[in-house]
Design a protein around this nucleic acid. Structure first.
Lengths: 157, 157
DNA sequence: ATTATAACTTAGTAATTTACTAGGGAATTA
DNA sequence: TAATTCCCTAGTAAATTACTAAGTTATAAT
């Protein structure tokens, strides 16, 4: 089990697709600028996401990326697993002896926890996040950037 | 938000304390051998845990470490935070502009998720893990270490 | 057809984090 | 006094992260 900034990059990039992929594909160049992640690093992340069919690429001019499935069919666990490959279960696999059960016991307790976290993240989908964000008026502090923000998001001034 | 092998080390070490700290303190040397973590690395981890009052050290011969509070008063979030210092909230803090709301929106959605994970881990205590492990018969493959393990966990043979 | 676009691929690298080694000091017990 | 164990600092090898560079391939527009 692992959860790092790499996973965060992947999730926010996928959120970007979920939010902006309605009318046509989203280019990595766009995401790069939106999220402040280098283009080439994004390409690496998306290679992993593509391998797990979480995104679908379209080449050529006007191309870009779509979500590989509906947003409510993609869990956070799916995304994290794709880029962080957390198959880090410590079920003392033969090699490492159990040191009288003590090490093995704590490992097994950790595995239980790891499983709980996985199940938790498996239940949260991209669609959930977008939906909850919409409801709770989650946005940045609306102080001075209001006009600019409203212009871009299409709200009336 | 972050969750790495460092956090796992900290949690399993704390589990070690919870399991073996009933009758007297547990030495880092014991934990080192139990968990297969280098002594000096453990000292670094415990420096962080000590700073957050999650453990209490006793010096001198016969010394070692106790839990700083009762096992049901120590959450997994407490432990992870102590060693991984995940204060990694991306609430675009003035410096980084919002790029027309787009970056800020996904960041805020991530923060929501991060908060959800935190709340989840805040609800799980060391005592919970130990208890659930006992109930679900979580141990290693019960082949040869049975008697020894049963002795330690106090089960009848 | 040619050209521009944007996905794909590979190799290399700076920066950071992880996990450890080494060498001590300070408190406490025997 | 001596042994033990926590405590502290500095240095370092290994791994990971995040990026740069330099391409190739597929597709759409001209």
């Amino acid at each position: 089990m692992r959860l790092s900034t790499k996973g965060r990059y992947a999730v926010t990039a996928m959120l970007d697709l979920a939010l902006n992929g309605q009318d046509g594909p989203v280019t990595l160049a766009d995401i790069s600028e939106n999220q402040g992640i280098s283009l080439s690093y994004l390409e690496q992340l998306f290679a992993a996401l593509r391998a797990k069919k979480l995104v679908r690429g379209v080449r050529g001019p006007g191309g870009g990326y779509f979500l590989g499935r509906e947003a409510d069919e993609i869990s956070i666990a799916n995304i994290i697993c794709a880029v962080d490959e957390w198959v880090e279960f410590t079920r003392c696999q033969g090699k490492q002896d159990c040191r009288g059960g003590q090490r093995c016991l704590t490992h097994s307790l950790w595995d239980d926890l790891s499983r709980q976290i996985y199940d938790f993240l498996e239940e949260i989908t991209l669609a959930d996040l977008v939906e909850r964000g919409r409801n709770s008026d989650a946005g940045c502090d609306r102080h001075k950037g209001d006009q600019l923000l409203d212009e871009m998001t299409g709200k009336a001034a």
